[in-house]
């Protein structure tokens, strides 16, 4: 019955995609329902850019995206039809290249109704099933790599603050920064004590840190709603939007740095799923397009 549902959804997504002309040849092929991704061994260093030549040597897997119907709030129809995935490793780190069609890049998350584009890779031990697919369980945590277009923009163009979205903003002064350069720039203009006026930052929320080091978060979850950043943020990546398509690299060391994080061993097989968020569709959190849980084989 579940398979039937997916087929119907696929048909709807397919109808929507008819309007999109000139799809690349591979995307026109029927995407596979389940991920079966091979992390190919390549010489160091791993490609950090989506345009790196080495990616051409890595076989792609086109994977169907479906709606998220298990956890409230749901997203019944995927925003995007499929995601193309490549993976490689060099014995030290593993990298993924995710590509999907998105007619508009949504990068900023400053305004109340602005949601970002993004993508995610969820890694689990082999043997994970339908329950673990939903963001893991207390017994089987999942490791998540999450690339965020808003952090990419912060890195590419500097921290996007209020004046980025509201260029005509006028404000007399921000306490306690009397006499500070206007508008005060984050983080330079804000000594520790002044951050009290920026509660998320002061409280140490990773989302509120104006200084970014990577556009990719490394997270752990043990069930829906339990997602949290791992202490060691050593995931890297880069996303580039060009000609209506996002190409995003996400990478992490094979070996776990933190408790509950997954270690990938060359020669091993793991469970994997992917997700795509489309900002213009209001995607965030559980409102996302996802793949089924599939297989990741890490070449010896």
């Amino acid at each position: 019955m579940a398979a039937q549902k997916i087929t119907r959804r696929q048909a709807l997504a397919g109808l929507a995609a008819l309007g999109t002309a000139a799809l690349p040849a591979v995307a026109q092929a029927q995407p596979s329902q389940q991920p079966d991704v091979r992390a190919v061994r390549v010489p160091s260093p791993l490609p950090a850019e989506p345009e790196a030549a080495v990616w051409a040597r890595v076989p792609p897997a086109e994977i169907a995206l479906i709606g998220q119907a298990m956890v409230l709030p749901t997203k019944m129809r995927p925003s995007v039809r499929s995601v193309r995935v490549r993976s490689c490793h060099d014995g030290e780190r593993v990298a993924f290249l995710l590509e999907w069609d998105d007619p508009r890049a949504d990068r900023r998350t400053v305004k109340t109704r602005e949601f970002k584009d993004g993508c995610g890779v969820m890694l689990l031990p082999q043997g994970a099933g339908a329950t673990e697919w939903m963001m893991g369980t207390p017994k089987m945590p999942v490791t998540v790599l999450h690339w965020r277009a808003d952090w990419q923009l912060d890195l590419d163009q500097g921290f996007q603050d209020v004046e980025a979205a509201f260029p005509n903003l006028a404000f007399d002064f921000y306490p306690p920064l009397v006499g500070a350069q206007h508008p005060p720039k984050l983080p330079e203009a804000y000594p520790r004590e002044a951050r009290r006026w920026l509660p998320g930052w002061y409280a140490g929320n990773p989302l509120s840190q104006p200084r970014k080091t990577s556009p990719v978060e490394k997270l752990v979850a043990q069930g829906a709603g339990t997602l949290e950043q791992l202490p060691t943020q050593n995931a890297t990546g880069k996303g580039v939007w060009k000609d209506g398509r996002w190409r995003v690299v996400l990478s992490k060391p094979l070996r776990a740095a933190d408790a509950r994080e997954i270690t990938l061993t060359p020669g091993g097989t793991y469970a994997v799923a992917f997700a795509v968020w489309q900002g213009i569709a209001g995607d965030r959190g559980a409102r996302k397009s996802i793949t089924l849980l599939g297989r990741l084989r890490v070449e010896p």
Binding site: T109, T112, A165, P199, W201, L207, S208, P210
Partner: peptide, 11 residues
């Protein structure tokens, strides 16, 4: 409940 434009979380 309001979204903080700078800290990007709600308050």
């Amino acid at each position: 409940v309001f979204y903080n434009h700078t800290t990007r979380v709600s308050e």
